[in-house]
Design a protein around this nucleic acid. Structure first.
Lengths: 254, 254
DNA sequence: GATAAAACTTGATAAATGACAATTTTTAAA
DNA sequence: TTTAAAAATTGTCATTTATCAAGTTTTATC
């Protein structure tokens, strides 16, 4: 492949982008706990901006549940294993999103979570949180909304299963990633992608197939990619190829 | 195919099996609302055992959120649509399970839910529920657990994507259905299956493939099937073929 | 019970994607 | 900058599963 780099406007320095607290999944929880007002109360409940190095575990399947994490920067994958040792990526976790919600019910983390690049998280201790009784109703309300959001986003997984081609799967994947980024106000046109093998695993495709489809997308000017960086050029056409029906939160858009 | 019906012990009368309140997903919510103690308070919040006929809608994508439903008997599918009109089944809903959790966050149902046979539900009105302030913390706690459980179970979808063959997908499907039935104490060895086309849709396979695989499973004595009725004969072998790692709630079993 | 419709089965063929192997490019390390 | 390792690309070929078409069985209705 010819070096098309010079045509691209992607030569920004790689500065670490981080979600503001205002756009963080933990925001309402932090706010409720009075953490933005009272820095001293903060430390007992939320550990802020803990760094997780590339390829390190945030937690492992089987660990006892301690609390949920919010991604401040970077990207994580949560994985489960088949009994032949093959891993299956259950989800990617983008800045602003919460990790660990699946563990609240049974009190045990059922997936392992690994950083896909140098990343950072905030960590909210649920046991400590419960002690702040007077705030607890609001706290719970926020947890409910976070969970419901997660349930809602998980429907993309089912849509992937129904996709009729590799191309459609990739399109759905891109739509899902970028709509999620936008939800937390990250610059939602440009994104550092996971590795081919991780995308492939997540989508149930061979990594060669992922590469070929992305190349076709680039030839059709839907995206521009340089290295692991991907830029959306024609969102509506990608939406077209994803073939999803979009519902607005209030009105049925069709 | 020869009629193997006489070999099967499946000629019980088709009496409507219904989950007890004790094993219902709404149970803790009902209990909290004091509904089992005080029948009069009940009516304002929970509509009990509303019948939904086969193929009728419980709600439609785009409807405003009113509350969650618990399946008392029967089975439902929730669906989303591709823009070519093709439907994608997001989930099946078995007795004891809750429907509508994805709508709490944005206040709008994002999927359409249809009964796959004559069914019944209880319906909990969230707006009414919020008025019972003194019970509200416990109520929210239960909602959180229900949601977390849902998030946890949704990981089966991802595992389906990773399955390497149609056979593995079917095995995972059977494991997921029967472990979910067992969670609500239904007789978890025998089950009235959805139609081939619905299973196929859910699993991302052609309905012919689903039929062929189930036939092979029957030849290998993993299951017995008569009409839409399916009986598990060799659970551990199915588990084997599903290839999933099982985690216990407390100890890592492997 | 008879009839029609729906659901399911079965077989043949085609096509998309997986698997393999060899290069090339990118990234990381020295 | 050089070097080594990791990741991504490219081409070929094999295989699973989708698709199509025809038949059979089951289910529902009169």
């Amino acid at each position: 492949m010819k070096n098309t780099g010079s045509r691209l406007s992607m030569n920004q320095p790689k500065k670490l982008k981080e979600v503001d607290c205002d756009n963080c999944g933990l925001y309402r929880l932090c706010q409720i706990a009075g953490l933005d007002a009272d820095e001293s109360a903060l430390d007992s409940v939320v550990e802020r901006r803990k760094k997780i190095a590339n390829a390190d575990y945030l937690y492992r399947a089987g660990d006892r549940f301690s609390g949920v994490f919010a991604v401040k920067s970077g990207i994580f994958k949560s994985i489960s294993y088949f009994d032949d040792g093959r891993e299956q990526i259950i989800d990617f976790h983008l800045p602003g999103e919460l990790i660990g919600l699946e563990a609240i019910d049974e009190g045990i983390y059922l997936q392992s979570v690994i950083a896909l690049e140098n990343s950072s998280v905030c960590d909210m201790d649920f046991a400590e949180m419960e002690k702040l009784e007077h705030k607890f109703i609001a706290f719970q309300g926020s947890v409910i909304h976070a969970l419901s959001r997660k349930v809602r986003l998980d429907q993309y997984q089912s849509l992937l299963i129904g996709a009729q081609s590799a191309e459609q799967r990739l399109a759905i994947f891109l739509i899902s990633i970028f709509s999620r980024l936008r939800a937390h106000d990250m610059q939602a046109h440009s994104f550092r992608m996971p590795m081919r093998k991780d995308i492939a695993n997540y989508l149930g495709l061979a990594l060669e197939t992922v590469g070929r489809v992305l190349k076709r997308f680039e030839e059709s000017k839907l995206i521009e990619s340089k290295g692991r960086h991907l830029k959306i050029c024609n969102y509506s056409e990608i939406q077209q190829r994803a073939g999803l029906i979009q519902y607005d939160a209030v009105t049925k858009v069709a």
